[in-house]
Each structure stands twice: as structure tokens, then as C-alpha cells.
Design a protein around this nucleic acid. Structure first.
Lengths: 219, 219
DNA sequence: CAAGTTATCAAGTATTCGCTTGAATATCAA
DNA sequence: TTGATATTCAAGCGAATACTTGATAACTTG
């Protein structure tokens, strides 16, 4: 069979993309890029790696077909290559929670105590009724790159200072980068401590965005 | 920040599953298991690797949460750990076709000339009307482990011999393991050469099965 | 064009990975 | 128990990978 060889080539080619998901460092970069496109040094700083190393991983992810690369003046901006690539990362993350106890444990360790959540469907409904305030507690640049329609940006560090902005008669829903991002958890805890009724959105911006695209019942 | 460390743990844990997809050999095993659960030596033979090596890869995939392991008497049977794990493999494969030219080229090289296809929706419709014959050209064991309702099993090697079994007034639809499996392509070519009207189903059994579960309009 | 950013490249090293070989273990059947 | 079959384990070796450091390239601004 000469076709065996051709088949090997095929699997080798697919494995190039698979390798993109095989390193914790690369996954951290993907996780950051799921929020917004970014430049190399920004990613290096956010992930605590050297610039050269970050650049190498980003190139690998680009070669794996997961990221696009755009030159913008003196910097190079990387971004997810498409919805399917983003969806793949989210699906891998979710499947790993479901099947690997280690992941769940690590997540609990990182996130701290559970807080009450609200799902997408219910939030959409409540938004329609208008009796809820949605706050985006991610850094402002990420809000700028994309956010839930109707949400207002209150980065976590500014939350205490800006509590007064939130109408006192409405429940607050906080969201951030996703299920493994600690910001919304902390926001809900602080709001509860301040005597406010608050919940965390299940998932974060990337999940919301993907879901909205496949099921565009607005927002 | 002590949380940096906790985050690293989290990504390391997820990367364990990611590593499952990072080797061509492992992908080949996943591809085989997408059809039906199998024992170690069967997989070793089908993929042309040594038994010890196959066993190691399978253990890695098991540790990655992608496969389950069951002892059946003297043999050990591996199977996909769930729909999400299977879906992940199919999504990775599809995304790699979409984003990596190398994969497309390798696929074309392996599959040979294109043949006409029919999609899931159209096939369902035609099945309702009853003017089409669906044949499963995979090996019989794979048919036995699961197949499209109403299809009949005619392994590729038996096709010529059993041409007479196919009602001459109906179009034939052949399917096999998936878009990268050469059986259905070959079946359609041979049927066309024999003067029959024939098409290949887009995708194969795993795709059909997953789609049927999320959209159970029968079949 | 010179200076200053930002990103990439190249080379070196420690580590991990993939595969092989030969021995060990588990289960079944006689 | 013994023998046969199927799988896993353990050790070893070459190849690939991850990260570092220092040099180079691409672009912008003065």
C-alpha cells in the first residue's frame, strides 16, 4: 500500500494544529487572545514569559493555523484565525474540565469559592425586562475590543470606587474572560459584601460572542 | 501574585488533553476509534505500529481524558470517552482542513479525484422518499458497531461481486469513515464505471452519528 | 539618516518525547 | 498448575522541544 504513506502525511499535517494545544504556555496565549487581538510584548507581559519565547510560541500557533498575524507599524498583532479556531480552544477547555479531575481541582484552587451564576438564556430574558445591570469587569481595552451589548465597563480595580454608579434597585450581573477567569468571581463577592444582589454570568465574553453568532436572537 | 502559579497549574492540566492531539500516531488511533471501540492489537495492526508503542499512546490518550479503557477478558478495549471528545477530534480535523493548506493537499493526494457528494439534509429527504440506496462500505465490524439506519453493509472488497444486490433503478449513496477515508470515493468510482448513478455522503459515520444526536429528526 | 521601538532569528543547552527491545503481568482455558 | 494470548512495564537512545541569551531586522519618529 503506497497509500499508507499518504495517510501518514495527512495525520502529520493535522498534528501541526494539534501541537498548538500541547503546551501550557501556548494555551495561556490563546486564552488571552480569546479576549482581543494583541501585540507580542503585551502578551509577553501578560503571561510572564520572555519576549523571544512568546514570539516563538506565537509563530508556532500561526504556523498551526490558529492565529493570524498582522503588521501594524512597528508592532505585530496576533489574533484568532476564525470562529472555528476559537471554538476549538473553548471546546478543548470545556472537555478537559469534564474529563480531567486535575483540571477541575486546579480551577477550584484558582477561582476560590463558588458564587451564584446566571445562564445566557436567563440573562437575555432579564435584559429584555430591563431589571438587571450587566458589568464587564475586564480591563478596559478588552471591553473596547468587544463586549455584551448593554454592558458597562467597570474594571475590577475600580469596582469599589464606582459602586454608586450601579442603580441600587437592580440585580448586578458580572462577567469577565470566561469560566476560568477570577475577576467576575471576585466582583460578585465584593458586591455581595457591599450588600448588593449579584451573580456571575456563566462563561465570559468569548463564549457569549460565539453563542450569539450561532444563535443571533440579538445581544 | 500567588495566583500566577495556580493559573500555570490550570493550563498545565488542560495541556495534558491538548497533548493527546499533538502526535500523528495518536491522531491515527483516534481516527480509528471514531468508528468503533477496539483492542490494542487490532489498533496496532490497523495503524502499522508496534504493539508496545500503540499501548503507550493509548495510555497517554486515556490519561488525557479522551479515551475510556475497559478490560474484556484477556484484552483491553479502548473507546472514545464521550461525544465531546469525539466532537473535539472532528472539529480539529475540520479546522485543520480549513486553515492549513498542507492538510488539504495531503488529503487530495490521499483521496484522489473528487467525486460527487450529497449532504446530510438532502440524504434525509431522499431517504424519506425512498428512492435511494445507502451502502456502508466500511469493514463489517465497523458497520456492526453502528451505522446509518437503513444502510446496508457492503465492504469495499465485496462491492464488484455484489453489484447485483443493488436495485438498478435507484441512485446509490456510499459512505465510510469520514471525509478523509478513501473507501467511499473508490466505491463511487467503481459504481460509476459500472454505469450506476452514485454519490458519496459528505462526512462519514462519526459525523452522521454526532449530527443525529444533536438534531434527532430520526435516522 | 540616526535613534528608538518592537519583533524575529540563531545558537546553545537541558528536558521531554517517541520508539524499540526484552521482561513482567493479567486473564483464560486445559 | 501450566501454557497461551493480550497488554503493560522498564530501560535506553536518538530526535524534537522549550527556554535563554545576544545579535539582527523592520518600522517609526525626530
Amino acid at each position: 500500500m503506497a497509500s499508507r504513506e499518504a495517510k501518514q502525511f495527512l495525520f502529520e499535517a493535522i498534528a501541526v494544529m494539534g501541537k498548538g494545544f500541547s503546551s501550557p504556555r501556548r494555551l495561556e496565549l490563546l486564552d488571552l487572545l480569546a479576549q482581543a487581538p494583541r501585540g507580542v510584548d503585551e502578551l509577553a507581559r501578560a503571561s510572564g514569559q520572555s519576549i523571544a519565547n512568546t514570539s516563538q510560541h506565537l509563530q508556532a500557533l500561526h504556523a498551526a493555523g490558529l492565529l493570524t498575524r498582522t503588521r501594524e507599524g512597528t508592532r505585530v498583532v496576533y489574533a484568532f484565525a476564525g470562529e472555528d479556531a476559537l471554538g476549538l480552544w473553548l471546546a478543548l477547555r470545556d472537555a478537559s474540565v469534564a474529563h480531567l479531575g486535575e483540571v477541575e481541582r486546579a480551577a477550584r484552587e484558582y477561582l476560590g469559592e463558588d458564587v451564584e451564576t446566571i445562564g445566557r438564556a436567563e440573562l437575555l430574558e432579564r435584559l429584555g425586562e430591563g431589571d438587571v445591570v450587566v458589568i464587564d469587569v475586564r480591563p478596559e481595552e478588552e471591553f473596547a475590543a468587544g463586549h455584551i451589548e448593554g454592558a458597562r465597563s467597570i474594571p475590577l480595580e475600580e469596582l469599589e470606587r464606582r459602586l454608586a454608579e450601579l442603580p441600587p434597585d437592580r440585580e448586578v450581573v458580572a462577567y469577565c474572560r470566561g469560566p476560568f477567569c477570577a475577576y467576575a468571581h471576585q466582583a460578585v463577592r465584593r458586591l455581595s459584601d457591599a450588600g448588593r444582589s449579584a451573580r456571575r454570568l456563566e462563561g465570559g465574553w468569548p463564549e457569549w460572542s460565539l453563542a450569539s453568532k450561532s444563535d443571533p436572537q440579538h445581544a
